[in-house]
Design a protein around this nucleic acid. Structure first.
Length: 112
DNA sequence: CGAGTGACCGCAA
DNA sequence: ATTGCGGCCACTC
């Protein structure tokens, strides 16, 4: 089986992989969902060295600004997001208030 | 087990 | 608005 990857990383991978196109999530949010609301830095580390197949481009900061260190720089990140349908301002910021996405919360929906 | 690092977050000046 | 500092957690040496 796989290596004993930390549950934290497993969750982060899972959530990031489920972010729908045109939506974004924040590092602190992913960290909180993974079980540690203050481990946003860890999420950043995972984003840098984690599975490159995942859409990390949809992961932004809490302030809405794009992350630093993305291959291609902010300009590259911006263009990728725009290609996904996310509006990015010239200041490399996205409307988190509007595009922020949360995973399906159980119990809220009557459909199991 | 200790120290350093990091695609962050929040607060103070 | 920007800059500086601490903190939190996982990973590596």
């Amino acid at each position: 089986m796989n290596q004993p990857d930390s549950e934290f990383r497993e969750k982060v991978y899972s959530y990031v992989a489920q972010i729908p196109k045109g939506r974004v999530m924040t590092y602190g949010q992913l960290a909180a969902l993974a079980g540690h609301p203050y481990a946003a830095r860890v999420v950043g580390g995972i984003a840098h060295w984690g599975n490159p197949e995942l859409p990390w481009q949809r992961v932004v900061k809490k302030s809405g600004s794009l992350a630093e260190g993305y291959p291609g720089g902010l300009s590259g990140h911006k263009q990728v997001l725009e290609a996904e349908g996310v509006e990015v301002s010239d200041d490399y910021r996205v409307d988190v208030e509007r595009l922020l996405w949360w995973p399906p919360t159980p119990g809220q929906n009557s459909l199991l």
